[in-house]
Design a protein around this nucleic acid. Sequence first.
DNA 1: AGAAGATCGTTTGGGCCCGCACGAGTTCGC
DNA 2: GCGAACTCGTGCGGGCCCAAACGATCTTCT
Lengths: 190, 190
Amino acid sequence: MTGHHTLQETEQAIQRRLGDVPLRHDAMMAVSNIYRAAAAIRQHFESSVLRGADLTWTAFVVLWVVWIWDEMETRHVAEEAGISKGTLTGVVKTLEGRGLIERGSHATDGRLVLLRLTDKGQELMRGLFPAFNAEEAFVVERLSGDENRTLAQTLRSVVEHLEEAGDERREALRAESPFPPRRSGRRPRS
Amino acid sequence: MTGHHTLQETEQAIQRRLGDVPLRHDAMMAVSNIYRAAAAIRQHFESSVLRGADLTWTAFVVLWVVWIWDEMETRHVAEEAGISKGTLTGVVKTLEGRGLIERGSHATDGRLVLLRLTDKGQELMRGLFPAFNAEEAFVVERLSGDENRTLAQTLRSVVEHLEEAGDERREALRAESPFPPRRSGRRPRS
DNA sequence: AGAAGATCGTTTGGGCCCGCACGAGTTCGC
DNA sequence: GCGAACTCGTGCGGGCCCAAACGATCTTCT
């Protein structure tokens, strides 16, 4: 798509390979462009604003979520940040080591861990966020106000669709042909 | 966004934290929804179609690109797949170990490495791609044909904008305040 | 011809990412 | 009460991810 081949050449190559199979080209383009845009955006942020603070995209998002909510349980942070709780543990460890975030325990439920920014973390976010938002504006600067709103709304409905129907869909697919376990992942002890 | 807080509550929390700072909310929503949608999509694919073949999203994209073009130089594969060449080296190593892809050398330029699918790899893709495309259709099934096309087109223009203006923008930002080197990454030998 | 420079894929270091197993802690059912 | 069932965050294994350094190869300039 973005490489040394034109869109047309790519289309032709796909046709050549899959000529007889009926294909949903429109869906293919939409999905691949979502992914491509997300990667390009992440790339832009990590090599501009975030580089100055030596933060990855994910680390920034975690800081942002905790900052906005002041104090939050880890499972909710993971969900809002869109990462698994196992990943969050590692990211928090990194941020804790850099003195940007703190862990605290819950008053009544001993299983929970609460996250909150340190003063240093708050100061970082206060300075960083305006610059971050300025880049967000840069990313969509070529779009009209209408295009921008429509884009956000359409993507929102894609996300909602996956949230509402995704589980069921995966269930149905698994029923047809059960998936083997993942090659990686922790092994039982014995 | 997708968590236990409503959109409205999130908006209010942001206002509370940043009430006095002028913000581009529209850009913020568009960018965060792009990223959120991409993550949800990747998640759906990895836990449905790709799980059956024990492939990650990236591994699949690499196979797809090589499959479509039959034979391709690694640098172009990396670009089309949207990953760095260093990452590609590792992914190819994994796929090579599973007998799905082969490396070959270029006839006249000894620096280049050509990639091509093995028979096993081709067979895998022939069976897998229709299922993959069916999930792409599922992802956007709630959108009308118009919405779908507009979405793809709008995202395309975002990607093009970043490709055309991103370098210059980062250059300008770096001029204001030069970025420190990344904390990670290889160190000079001595 | 030969040195200087560009470009290729690979290596390295640090970090993110997931799924699943696990132990600590809580709630439910009786 | 008190064990069974659930839920929490963390440990672990395998894999992706990037920037920068690097050696091998090719090109360009003199």
